[in-house]
Design a protein around this nucleic acid. Structure first.
Lengths: 146, 146
DNA sequence: CTACAGCCTGTAGTAACTACGGGTACAAGG
DNA sequence: CCTTGTACCCGTAGTTACTACAGGCTGTAG
């Protein structure tokens, strides 16, 4: 049980090689998504076992975790690519990274503002509704009015 | 000028027939989108002119306006379809419509909450940044940490 | 008569995956 | 030794809601 070979783990929780399934389970990223990331160049093509199965190491694990966190923070794959390019280049500055983060923060705030306007409108038209059984509905009226 | 034939308008701003371009301009819905709505059954197939051009009337205009407003309020096309089905059936009750609206309102509120959590996290990690030119970046650290 | 706009159809591209179909590989149980 | 089951392989299609061509016809104004 502490040498889960199918996962590619070897000793004491220390990971030396991971199958795609093992990587998927450790990161919580769908197996198909890992392959997808490889196809579009977000993840590098890992070495293969004799049978052609993908073998991942700690670096892959770190990178995929990075991608997953970034996605959870709402960065698009394009933005993630930009962040990775900075990291891969190795000569990124903190300022460059913060620029991307702040731009994304502005996008998020804009979206929140949009949704809040929507929320108000939806609440308003819904409030007009007397919830009768008659087919006369203020919501529909609002949507249909010229 | 007050009989814009290419738009299919006839007299005094009163619309009797609209080309797809005229409908598009009046509603602000992209011409291709109008055709798309026809393909997927959101808009009915209108009659055609001798040359095969689509001819729309006031009912089409009203329906497309309805669809556009609903979309602007963030209803998905599936939800718009449900609203239209109620209207088309003719026997909808105000309660049914309000149910859809309130469900959508809940979705919007959930999304706002999600984005606000994101906003806080992004602001926090960005604030940690000293904006130096050194390649050591707290944002990247956060994204990479185990 | 010749531009040029407007319309026609159908298909492909966008974002970011997810799901599926059909096939191979390998370990454990009988 | 064989079977069963799981994990993996690849490539393609489906999802949402459009948008953007490509290639061709029509219709009108100058």
């Amino acid at each position: 049980m502490d040498s889960d070979v199918t996962d590619g783990e070897v000793t004491g929780g220390e990971v030396t090689a991971l199958s795609i399934g093992g990587l998927s389970r450790r990161t919580g990223v769908h197996l198909e998504t890992v392959r997808y990331y490889e196809n579009i160049g977000i993840m590098p093509a890992p070495p293969r076992s004799a049978a052609g199965h993908r073998r991942y190491d700690r670096e892959h694990l770190k990178r995929l975790t990075f991608v997953k966190r970034s996605r959870e923070l709402g960065f698009t794959l394009k933005e993630v690519r930009a962040l990775l390019a900075l990291v891969d280049g190795g000569d990124y500055t903190c300022g460059e990274v913060q620029d991307l983060t702040l731009k994304h923060l502005r996008d998020v705030r804009d979206k929140i503002a949009d949704l809040q306007r929507l929320e108000v409108t939806l609440a308003e038209i819904s409030d007009k509704c007397a919830r009768g059984t008659i087919p006369d509905c203020p919501v529909i009226e609002t949507l249909f009015r010229d």
